[in-house]
Nucleic acid binder design. Structure first.
Lengths: 234, 234
DNA sequence: ACCTGAACACCGTTCAAGT
DNA sequence: ACCTGAACACCGTTCAAGT
């Protein structure tokens, strides 16, 4: 396991107050801890975060964090919520299709801005007010376009799952490795039984790059919605 | 952390040979270890699996496993590959749409048959021969329908991401909890700013159930493909 | 009140030794 | 050869004590 070998010698201490050696009281807050956790994750990756290391980063005793969060899960929930809240809603304009496209593209870019963080919250549904702002706008666009609330909820959930699936399985870093893995896997295949895979190795590799894939897949889903609207009108 | 409190007292020992106390040599194999890991995961959940516990289950010393797998990652890779290999390919019949539908529905059912296991393999792409059998068939159906190899690869990747997104974020157990979480989150929302969410709480809750959601979302993507084929013909 | 060291019950993995 | 106990460097969290 490679990574940080900087023993908790010095203690980095964010942009916090100038506490002399050991902080006294009220020096910390949930916000400060969340901010430190986000900074740590962006710097070292999500797998390296531990309560002990985070506390050391804050120049505090490990158990101090437990005064602000019940356990590590609660802390991670708060971190993910903070990210959703950070996402600015784009100004939406144009047809329903253009508006939905803008909303989802921005959402996806925001998820990819913190690689790996979405893997923290696979277990429980993501339903913080910050995340639901995006849902609210998605439902509005779809209902205004002519879909019923039930159809809108179903379509938005499909887009949600595609979006989060992309963020989880298509991390924006390490694209070359993923593309190389496709070529290696193809080369190891018994040639007779995989003609289409072997005939489309380059295309499969290209599509491992989220910059190439996400928008095009979204357009496919939007085409499906378009078709349904046309069927409604007819 | 709740879970298994059965100290490594007795050691269960699969359908293995009748080694007396301590096994001598060649008694174990990669296959036996994978089988034991799968059985353990299905029984206790994926979060409870540790090298120490798995070894105890096999009535072996912890380090014995390291004679067969370089580390835990390599073991988990092998477990996920074993599942892909288990998935029987359905006999495909009907139109391209019906065939693709059958293929993907079976694939999704297979993923959901081992809840949580797909979370083990988020990091590296899933490209074992077992998994690529499904890709091969998907590409064949799409190309026979009239799509180019590039279009087929792109469409199949979209379906892949939707499918794995569903398996990761929509686990088939604990549906009632997820639906309850939707209602709780909605109830906590400031009412003025979330009119569409609050007007569609039941619809949003329903769509948290993969049995309701997956097939309908797949149909939406298939509608998108249908629309593109029509545009090609025109 | 607010903070924290020591301790408990775990991890994965290296190493050197057992048979 | 094949297996494994002891040890190392970690975890999250409980508890009882420090100021």
């Amino acid at each position: 396991m490679p990574g940080i070998r900087e023993r908790q010698t010095s203690g980095v201490g964010l942009s916090a107050a100038s506490a002399p050696r050991r902080r006294k009281r009220g020096e910390l807050s949930r916000e400060q801890i969340i901010e430190a956790a986000l900074a740590f994750i962006d710097r070292h990756g999500v797998g390296e975060l531990s309560m002990r290391r985070l506390a050391a980063e804050l120049d505090a005793g490990t158990m101090t964090i437990y005064g602000y969060f019940r356990d590590k899960d609660e802390l991670l929930d708060a971190v993910v919520d903070a990210i959703s809240r950070q996402a600015p809603l784009p100004k939406l304009s144009g047809t329903w299709r253009e508006q939905l496209r803008q909303l989802v593209m921005r959402w996806n870019a925001n998820l990819n801005h913190h690689p790996g963080i979405v893997r923290l919250r696979l277990e429980r549904p993501i339903l913080s007010p910050g995340a639901l702002r995006i849902t609210e706008n998605g439902l509005r666009i779809l209902e205004d376009a002519g879909f019923t609330p039930a159809e809108a909820a179903q379509a938005f959930r499909t887009i949600f799952l595609y979006n989060f699936g992309s963020a989880v399985f298509n991390p924006p870093d390490r694209v070359p490795e993923a593309q190389q893995a496709v070529r290696v896997a193809a080369a190891a295949l018994p040639p007779d039984h995989y003609p289409r895979v072997l005939g489309a190795v380059d295309e499969m590799a290209e599509v491992m790059d989220p910059a190439m894939q996400f928008e095009r897949g979204l357009d496919l889903i939007l085409d499906g919605l378009e078709r349904r609207l046309e069927a409604k009108r007819r």
